[in-house]
Design a protein around this nucleic acid. Sequence first.
DNA 1: TAGGCCATCTGGTCCT
DNA 2: AGGACCAGATGGCCTA
Length: 218
Amino acid sequence: MRSGGVSRPPAVSEEEYWGQPSNWQDSEDVEVELLDNSEDMKQPSGNQILLDQFISKQNKGSEESSSDGESCGRGKRKRTARRLSPSYQPTPMLSAQAAQKKGKRRVSARERNLRRLESNERERMRMHSLNDAFEQLRQVIPHVKMERKLSKIETLTLAKNYIMALTNVICDMRGEEKPYTFVDGESSGENNNDEDIEVENLEENNNSSCQRDLETRD
DNA sequence: TAGGCCATCTGGTCCT
DNA sequence: AGGACCAGATGGCCTA
């Protein structure tokens, strides 16, 4: 049960995303009141209401141009209301920042939309670079050949093991005591769930693979 | 069909 | 002030 197929959905254009032409609210400036969240923390239900109000406000525009507000094809996701978990608690702002941001400020809806899209783009690029780094890490980790590529958690776990194995080798060469031990069925952590067990199995294969790799490089 | 993995969006916070 | 970073939410794809 692994390796979910992932294709990067194309970035959604402003018009597609908001279900309106990009200048749909050009003439309407929205007065945004920046709230001190520390007050809201005392009333989580009130926060939920604020959020719902914001979401429904945002959705108004797209609902008019589309009867189906829920699902859609991959890569063209429409904005849907986010359901918050019961445990959701907004993070309180630091008092200094809250004080600084307190008060009203006029921000055009167009400007907000634009900033959000730009922010999304930056976040996308950031995640892509992070994934590139993961890919580079995968390429330098010796592991049992598999049809599927290593998942992120596997990559990190195996990288950690590889570092530990290398450290052991270095210490061994110096005649020092090996700082790490690899015990069968138990890999340096308190892993208990199924996912971790699967990673452990991978690790077991990988540990011997690491050792062989290190020995041949000597 | 359930569960795992992932990309993306989003809003809050931190940092420069 | 604006960008980077982070974590939660959501939904799509894939496999057992």
